[in-house]
Amino acid sequence: MEFDVTARRRDAHGSEARCKQAVIPLDTDPAGNTDAFNPAELLLAALSACMIKGIERVTPILKFRLRGVEVRVHGVRRDVPPRLESIVYEIVVDTDEEDRRLDLLHDNVRKFGTVFNTVAPGTQLSGTLRRRRPGEEGPPS
């Protein structure tokens, strides 16, 4: 499997990335741009998408029933050399499945995610997968 993305500068305030029929605005302005993801945020979004895609891929195989998923990611940047020093994630699953099945789902996310396994060796990557609590704000979808 191979992937191709093309990015181009739009102006001094932003760029865009294209893949297939999709376009993503990029924050490449040194002053920042609140209407787009900066490169570090884009990496965290890719990691989040990888986790959700892995869950979507494995739930039919495991016959795992869920109503929704939300991934929350926090990255800490180190200045010298510039890099993401650590990434902590929380996967919140809206499900009635047993705890052991949640553990199995989390194991699959960690073992079979392309972006997850690319990022993990180069940073302190850790996190949890938990069930959504009754009444918790912002239902995953």
Rank of each mutant, 00 (worst) to 15 (best):
R57T: 06
V92K: 02
P60L: 12
R10C: 10
M51C: 01
N108C: 11
T123N: 06
P30G: 02
K20N: 07
R77Q: 03
D103R: 14
R8T: 10
A120M: 04
G127V: 12
S15R: 00
L84Q: 03
K63N: 15
R18H: 14
R130S: 06
I55V: 10
P82G: 04
E98N: 12
A22G: 04
N117C: 03
E97C: 02
L26R: 06
D35G: 13
H106E: 12
D11A: 09
I24L: 12
D11W: 10
T59A: 11
A31H: 07
Q124N: 14
E70F: 00
L84R: 02
T95F: 01
L43M: 11
A12G: 14
V76W: 05
H106Q: 12
R8I: 11
F116Q: 11
G68Y: 06
R65A: 13
E90N: 15
D4P: 05
M51P: 00
F3S: 09
A40E: 00
L125P: 03
E90I: 13
D103H: 14
C50V: 03
K53L: 11
T28L: 15
A45I: 06
V88F: 14
V92A: 01
P60A: 06
C50N: 01
D99L: 12
V73D: 01
G122N: 14
L125I: 12
V73G: 05
I61F: 09
V92L: 08
A120E: 01
L125M: 03
G127S: 09
G113M: 05
E56P: 05
G127N: 07
G135K: 09
T123K: 04
P30K: 10
D27E: 00
A17R: 03
S15V: 05
R9N: 06
A22W: 12
L62H: 03
V71Q: 05
T128W: 00
A36Y: 01
L66P: 00
R57N: 15
R131A: 06
L66K: 04
A17E: 09
E137N: 13
Y89C: 00
V71F: 08
L84V: 13
R130F: 10
E16I: 05
R77L: 15
L105W: 03
Q21R: 09
A45D: 00
F64V: 02
T114N: 14
E56D: 15
T114K: 09
V119R: 02
A12E: 06
R132Q: 02
F64H: 03
Q21I: 05
S86E: 07
P39W: 10
